[in-house]
Design a binder for these strands. Sequence first.
DNA 1: CGTCCTATTGAAGCTTCTCAACGACAGTGG
DNA 2: CCACTGTCGTTGAGAAGCTTCAATAGGACG
Lengths: 250, 250
Amino acid sequence: MTRPVTAPPLSVSDDVIAPALRRLSALSSLEAADLALLHAAMEVSQTHPPRHNFLTLGRPIAAPLLLLQGWAARVRILPDGRRQFMSFYLPGDVIGATHQAMPIASATVIAMTETIVCPAPAAPAGSGLAQAYAVAEALDEAYLLGHVVQLGRLNAQERISDFLLEIYERLSLAGLTVGGSFEMPLTQEMLADALGLTPVHVNRMIQQARRDGELMWKSGRVLLRDPERTARTIGRQSPQVTTQRVGASG
Amino acid sequence: MTRPVTAPPLSVSDDVIAPALRRLSALSSLEAADLALLHAAMEVSQTHPPRHNFLTLGRPIAAPLLLLQGWAARVRILPDGRRQFMSFYLPGDVIGATHQAMPIASATVIAMTETIVCPAPAAPAGSGLAQAYAVAEALDEAYLLGHVVQLGRLNAQERISDFLLEIYERLSLAGLTVGGSFEMPLTQEMLADALGLTPVHVNRMIQQARRDGELMWKSGRVLLRDPERTARTIGRQSPQVTTQRVGASG
DNA sequence: CGTCCTATTGAAGCTTCTCAACGACAGTGG
DNA sequence: CCACTGTCGTTGAGAAGCTTCAATAGGACG
């Protein structure tokens, strides 16, 4: 899996940083200066184990982080132990975006897998990177709205399909899909806590989807047989990614 | 209800603008200049009937509006007619906040009641008003996260209590509660579409809450008997309003 | 007084949950 | 090398929560 690192010695290999770079580039065209900022930031990347807390509800917000590898999630635990994942961060996502107005975190952010993060470099006003951050933040909100609809008005089968389609769509932007398949590091229990279901019911619905020939799911890898047909069936509408430049650009 | 308007002739009465002013002041202390901006903006307020579309999913975002009176909501309609309200806007809330990065609306915003809105005046950087907007936007996200938890992990009874507590809390900031009671213009059907339930079940749960002495609800007005006890029972945690000034303030 | 919308109630059914048990698998220590 | 342990996926049976369909009642309005 490791490839000889060329040119300047990086603290992380090219393989690690590539997905995040692809993802950010997909949101807005990055300039040479942006790439330089990103490469510099990635020099000080850090690895965190699963369950590591990046942010804690009610605690001060740390500097924003750029997720390079692995998954993280916003989570809320109720006093009686019920758990709800509110959104997931995938490679290329920014954790703890610059909500300067709200100095305390509105949610706990936890690593779902082993993760590699680096500081999210401050973007010069009007730069492609600033635009990428802004679009990323807007997309974040759009997916959150989608999650509300999913929980409120989709049944178990539809929620699973919708979730997998969303992940597929987002991982595609980072180039992390291979022939329509992608890595799914979540256990069925985590999935249940994201979809507002029980692990048992998630399991049954997955198996039904398997029997229906809708998907394959084995050892942490998912293959959607016909994403477009599935999306049409459940009436899924993806957030529109807009790369149109707006505001005071250089 | 109408009181003689004093001093400069306004297009709306003081009664109309007071709640929004109270609400914004509660988020950040407004300066004289901010108040002048707001008063000027309110000169051109407009009244819209129920069902009026302020924003339409996928259409360009119009100038941000300040909601003075009435309720609005972000809504998504599925192809088969299922409907989900994702969040509500109450007096003092900003509709279509300045997501410059995403020039197209990520949701449709519709008037739930007759509403009065005015343009949201642009806030000078570092002003109290800018801070109020920013906090409002952060709160908006916090409530949205709360909605996800509500839909994912609360049962019908808890969802209704949680929803009413949230509305009570938010209306309090605008001074729109009287002795623990407040106006609830939503029909049970609308409530069902916000809580991911059917109108019939919402009705049953409300009546159970009535029998349990938890609330009174008659002719569009709700009285919560013991909000704090209810909040404790369902483990509700309110977003923290932070008025702490951050960033480049004048 | 008729119409429409909203609230209310009953009965039956379906989706999802709960409880419980078992199998597959990886890691660990003897 | 093999029990031991823990996690995760799988399955069954019964119960609970919520929905669906249908019908009635109450109010607002023309």
